[in-house]
């Protein structure tokens, strides 16, 4: 389990290393220093609240695929930094890896599934996001699409179905809650001055103390939501 956490840390470190610190405008761009890098930053976030109803699905699951829904409420201190709290609740289903094949393949029994981790029930989180990149591109040579990209990190309260240490037929473990954290990347595609499509990929780390070994769990989530900004109007002078 720690391998994926290690992978994530390596990926984030690589991103930080490859970040365009020395990025510069090409000499070929005749508008360098004349027109702002991205002229007309129509969609500004500083000083705004952002409310995002969102859905989330787990990726790279070993035993359970999670389908969560919830909301995120954030405040943008500047164009680059924001703080948000979120809540997600949902259900899960077993993956194909839980099929047990001997002469024929059958789904694992509930007693067997009680021995493996990963059935997350709900998540509460707080996170800090840093959004250094704002850009726009032309789609079909006409419509300009504005977007931003960000990295985020935060702490979580993770509620999950607990695991049993050994096979105990008929015994159902209860739910447990543990402290965790997450790292991720995301982007917004602005649809209007008050609305944006928000996409995120984040890895949640949490511990399952009742596992005999490898009790640090990681869970990759892909999230999509529709953000609404309040107030809608621009703040002048930005």
């Amino acid at each position: 389990m720690t391998t994926r956490a290690f992978n994530l840390v390596v990926c984030v470190a690589a991103l930080a290393t490859l970040a365009p610190r020395s990025a510069r405008g090409s000499a070929a761009d005749v508008f360098e220093h004349k027109v702002k890098p991205v002229s007309g930053q129509l969609y500004q976030k500083a000083g705004k609240l952002e409310l995002t109803p969102l859905g989330s699905i787990s990726l790279n699951d070993a035993f359970f695929t999670k389908y969560l829904g919830g909301a995120k409420l954030g405040y943008h201190f500047s164009e680059y930094f924001s703080l948000a709290v979120s809540g997600l609740y949902g259900t899960s289903g077993t993956t194909g890896s839980t099929s047990v094949c001997r002469t024929t393949c059958q789904p694992a029994s509930s007693d067997q599934l009680n021995l493996v981790p990963g059935e997350i029930k709900w998540l509460l989180g707080a996170e800090l996001a840093f959004s250094p990149i704002y850009g726009k591109l032309n789609v079909f040579a006409q419509k300009a699409v504005h977007f931003d990209l960000y990295v985020l990190g935060g702490v979580d309260l993770v509620n999950y179905r607990d695991v049993l240490a050994s096979l105990q037929p008929g015994v159902t473990p209860g739910n447990a809650t543990s402290l965790g954290g997450h790292l991720g990347v995301g982007g917004r595609i602005f649809l209007a001055s008050f609305m944006a499509l928000r996409l995120e990929l984040k890895d949640v780390l949490y511990s399952v103390p009742h596992l005999p070994r490898g009790n640090l769990q990681t869970q990759l989530f892909a999230e999509a939501g529709l953000s609404f900004f309040v107030p809608v109007a621009h703040r002048d002078g930005q």
Binding site: G25, S26, A28, D29, V30, F31, V35, V38, S39, G40, Q41, L42, Q44, G135, K136, L137, N138, A144, S193, A233, H234, R235, D236
Partner: peptide, 23 residues
């Protein structure tokens, strides 16, 4: 014009990339 409306008018009249900076 309300604050920001001028930006809106200008913003999307300027192409995202006037000249490619990397060939």
């Amino acid at each position: 014009l309300a604050p920001g409306e001028r930006d809106v008018a200008l913003g999307d009249r300027v192409k995202a990339v006037q000249l490619k900076g990397f060939l």
